[in-house]
Design a protein around this nucleic acid. Sequence first.
DNA 1: CTCAAATATGTTATATTATAACAAACGTTA
DNA 2: TAACGTTTGTTATAATATAACATATTTGAG
Lengths: 132, 132
Amino acid sequence: MARAQTLSRNQQIVLDIIQKAKGPLKAYSILFNVQKKGINAPQQIYRALDKLIGMGKIHKIESKNAFVACRSSDCEISKATAFSICESCEMVDEISDTKLSKYLSGFNHKKGMKFKRFNLEFFGICKKCKKD
Amino acid sequence: MARAQTLSRNQQIVLDIIQKAKGPLKAYSILFNVQKKGINAPQQIYRALDKLIGMGKIHKIESKNAFVACRSSDCEISKATAFSICESCEMVDEISDTKLSKYLSGFNHKKGMKFKRFNLEFFGICKKCKKD
DNA sequence: CTCAAATATGTTATATTATAACAAACGTTA
DNA sequence: TAACGTTTGTTATAATATAACATATTTGAG
Ligand SMILES: [Zn+2]
Ligand SMILES: [Zn+2]
Ligand SMILES: [Zn+2]
Ligand SMILES: [Zn+2]
């Protein structure tokens, strides 16, 4: 069984960096930020990222190949993720909307495929960027 | 202005291959398939892909870094895309569901961001794979 | 506790995906 | 024709991700 709670050393280091970040982080940018802590290779980052994603602690923003911390406590398994992405400043915001989540989780494909998981990415210009 | 209809030589070649394919194609797999036609470099593929995406002729499946032909005539601008993806056989199916599309196009973020575009990817096991 | 299994780590090398930069050709239209 | 935008060709390189193997650490059953 996978351990539910405890993170390994590398996993904790990677998670800390992602949680402290203001926006999505790329794998190699994480790598450069942890070299002082003795992590030297991409593998070490990608392995930690994989585990953290599996635990639902972080999510991958597929359109950006970048990673954000989960803010929504509900989605521990990352089965139903939705994000709002600013095309100008790159800001990413996790959307926790029960109605949306229920609507999509209940969505059934005409062709009979039963979905286990979805990922939704919205794009636009955020409020802050509109002012400029 | 962007030309609405006519495709350039390379664009047509790339589109043909994607349209003939049974599933999503990766950029380098397209490249290997067109070397006999005189296309030798990734750039040539990526440029064609970019234009075709802009025209709504193809879509990128972000979670797979792969490309499929648009089957749904409605989404000429790729503002509202949804796909069903089999995690076993990699099959991808474009979902054209007016209700779903309207629901998501009308979705408004609490934080006031107005969305211009979304991409939704559903994952599961397709009917065909379930039989095995 | 002890040993085996599972998980995590370190490391080197390599594969895969994507873009930069520049020069030349082509197509349109004023 | 001349000017402009678009497409092409080409070489090089950047950015993202995985393979493979050796070692270490943690965990839990007996
Ligand atoms: Zn989350
Ligand atoms: Zn913004
Ligand atoms: Zn389409
Ligand atoms: Zn399948």
